[in-house]
Design a protein around this nucleic acid. Structure first.
Lengths: 328, 328
DNA sequence: TTGAAAGCGCTAACAC
DNA sequence: GTGTTAGCGCTTTCAA
């Protein structure tokens, strides 16, 4: 920056000012600086900038895993938006562990990020404490209805479960089950299951079974869970799944066993993943707005970085959408 | 750090030393420092550390998109390994654009990262130039056989294509096609297609068709491409796909059209994605070692950070594996 | 509209 | 094994 300043016949602080607020510098001066930057191939050092400014242009995003298509979508959307503002995405994977999340938050804070993004609203006491101690803006995504730390963007998983129940009950289904994976760790899947059960009871006095498995959500698991469901609820006619992978496994297993979908059993998924529109039968599912969550999170962060604090403690309900197809 | 030092009755530089190389400090001194850190809730400032050390503990990873399950797997594996060494993952998405990649590399360099990870070996001249100008270690992943910048970890996509062709030809298939998406942008898919065509010709003098589409790889596209394949090669009996999503779409469309797999058409995928083992029929596919690529990349980076330069300019062939199942 | 000056919190020679 | 010292490359008052 010193070299650029000399070449442009200005002081380093003017170069710095120009880089951050070009409109505050005279047009001619700006031209000279731009020229010098190009000639020298100057690359600003954001680490030094972050130190001097006491806040780096980094945004720390902590998700359970980017292997999960939901979070991959959100992370990709956020990166695209934040990148436009030259904000760097720093990524961490909690692997559904509150302890790991706490450790990642601690590390994240070491980077003096412009914001920290966390998945869900359930965190360790330690996480809440260190976050409360500082004043880094926090955005919680993909969940709503719990105790917010700061800003919150997501939807109600309870409502998702209730919507699935309402839909199946409304189509005359009476023997219901909810199939899920990792229900201990994945609080959101658990909330969907509870909403499903409660709504089935409330609407029609039905008792819906929850059939869970600690394994990772996958197509294979869906097939396995269907088998268990058939044992526990022999005349089952309606199934909601904690995600589309499981639902796809159910569809395959039904095909293998000669069970008609939706004739014998109606199946509702969650996710609206890639294959949902083209599998056999096509999958009725609930679509969470993963990209919208990402762009909204980026928006409130960018506003905050610009000094606009109006989104502070906001709660944004992005909603979700039931996509009707053949399976239910 | 100053406060910690005072509380532990040592100098700040001893605290710094202890934090970076605990074994270089006397045990008793270390205890005192640990105690002071806990009492004060000290969180080191990695931005300041990065500035002073002229290299931050950040690793910049640039992939086409983390929405793609292949890269998600690699990114997740790398993050897990790098995290153990307190190295931060910074993420960027090139969206298969060399220009975007160049811009991301430029920004990455602003962070003085410990290493930069790029996907593939095809980059813009500008990218190569700015990377050559600095001395940040570069790891290219997911591709082999091209011109390396520095370290390279991946496998031969040409061989993947040849393996698929050899397998199909070996099973007596004679009317072949390769179905792919985004073949202009995705050089690696393109290389697989070329390898497929050349090997079919070399082994049995067969002319294999390449059927491409600029759309994003997806299940729906697979169904569409099968339709085109049937028009272009009416008596087609062997299909290789640029990834498993497309292969799944082919399986569904075959089922809809009453085409038997593998009876009428044998199908080979690429990816060994989640559903490959449980779809109907189960999918014969080629499994790229996404996680191994990630852990190996992390390993060479960690070695470099520790001062071990022995991996410099290494080329690691991770290979791949053909997984035989029902579809071929 | 521009510049001078004082750090930001740490690291890494080097001396002790 | 520990401390002294001199920055790392910027940002940000504040004054001109």
């Amino acid at each position: 920056m010193q070299a650029v300043a000399e070449r442009a016949n200005v002081s380093p602080s003017t170069v710095s000012l120009y880089l951050r607020r070009p409109e505050a510098v005279a047009a001619a001066t700006g031209q000279a600086i731009t020229g010098a930057i190009d000639e020298l191939g100057y690359v600003p050092n954001l680490v030094a900038g972050g130190l001097a400014a006491a806040a780096s242009r980094a945004v720390s995003i902590i998700v359970p895993s980017v292997r999960n298509a939901f979070f991959a979508e959100t992370v990709a959307a956020m990166q695209a938006e934040l990148g436009k503002e030259r904000l760097q995405v720093m990524l961490g994977h909690s692997e559904y562990s509150d302890r790991e999340e706490e450790s990642l938050v601690r590390t994240a804070l070491s980077w003096a990020p412009s914001a920290i993004v966390l998945t869900g609203q359930s965190h360790s006491a330690g996480t809440r404490k260190i976050l409360a101690a500082g004043n880094t803006p926090v955005v919680e995504i993909w969940e709503l209805g719990g105790q917010s730390i700061d800003m919150t963007i997501g939807f109600s998983h309870d409502k998702v479960g209730r919507t699935a129940a309402e839909y199946l009950v409304g189509r005359g289904r009476r023997q219901l089950a909810f199939l899920g994976a990792r229900m201990q760790e994945d609080r959101r899947a658990n909330t969907r299951a509870q909403g499903f059960v409660q709504e089935a009871l409330r609407l029609a006095g039905l008792h819906a079974e929850i059939i869970g498995n600690p394994a990772r959500a996958g197509v294979e698991l869906g097939a396995l869970l269907l088998g268990q469901a058939l044992e526990r609820v022999p005349d089952i006619d309606g199934i909601a799944c904690s995600n589309d992978h499981i639902a796809l496994g159910v569809l395959f297993e039904c095909q293998r066993r000669g069970i008609s979908v939706p004739g014998d059993i109606a199946v509702v998924g969650f996710g609206d993943l890639d294959f949902a529109g083209s599998c056999i039968p096509t999958l009725t599912t609930i679509r969470p707005p993963g990209d919208l969550i990402g762009t909204e999170a980026a928006r409130v962060i960018i506003n905050h970085v610009r000094g606009d604090r109006s989104d502070s403690h906001c709660v944004i309900d992005t909603g979700f959408r039931l996509v009707e197809r053949q399976s239910a």
